[in-house]
Computed example of a mutant assay.
Amino acid sequence: MSERTLKLAQRRTALRAHCASQREELARVAGNIESRLSSVDHGINMFRRYAASPALLVGGLALLTMIGPRRLLRWVGRSAVFVTAGQRIFRLLR
């Protein structure tokens, strides 16, 4: 084998290894993005499911009217903090 052919074969091997590592990195990043978007999809599906029910919409409006928007927003804010904390705890326990 000539020296040029040997160098080309080595370069080809190095490029194939580099491509394989890039594919692995791309798969890891795509999996991370997919997991984040799945939670968004879950939230959208839940919203659609509950928004399709007129009784829930009427009940939500009645709750908003009785409690008041400020108090309701305060409760939602506190609930969001607790939900986020719970998600982080469950993620750590897994």
Rank of each mutant, 00 (worst) to 15 (best):
M1Q: 05
M1L: 11
M1S: 15
E3F: 02
E3H: 12
T5P: 09
L6S: 14
L6I: 15
L6P: 03
K7F: 13
A9F: 04
R12W: 09
L15A: 02
L15T: 12
L15P: 04
R16V: 07
A17W: 04
A17P: 04
H18L: 13
H18P: 00
S21L: 09
E24R: 15
E25M: 06
E25N: 08
L26Y: 08
A27V: 01
A30R: 01
G31I: 03
N32R: 15
R36T: 11
R36F: 05
L37T: 09
D41M: 03
H42R: 00
H42Y: 03
G43H: 04
G43S: 06
I44D: 02
I44R: 02
N45F: 14
N45K: 11
R49T: 00
A52I: 02
S53Q: 14
S53E: 10
L57W: 07
L57N: 15
V58S: 02
V58P: 00
L61Y: 08
A62Q: 14
A62N: 13
T65R: 09
T65V: 02
M66Y: 06
G68F: 04
P69N: 12
P69E: 14
R71L: 02
W75G: 09
W75N: 13
R78K: 14
S79Q: 08
F82I: 11
V83T: 13
V83P: 06
T84I: 13
T84V: 12
A85W: 06
Q87M: 00
Q87L: 02
Q87K: 09
R88C: 01
R88A: 10
I89P: 01
F90T: 15
F90H: 10
R94F: 00
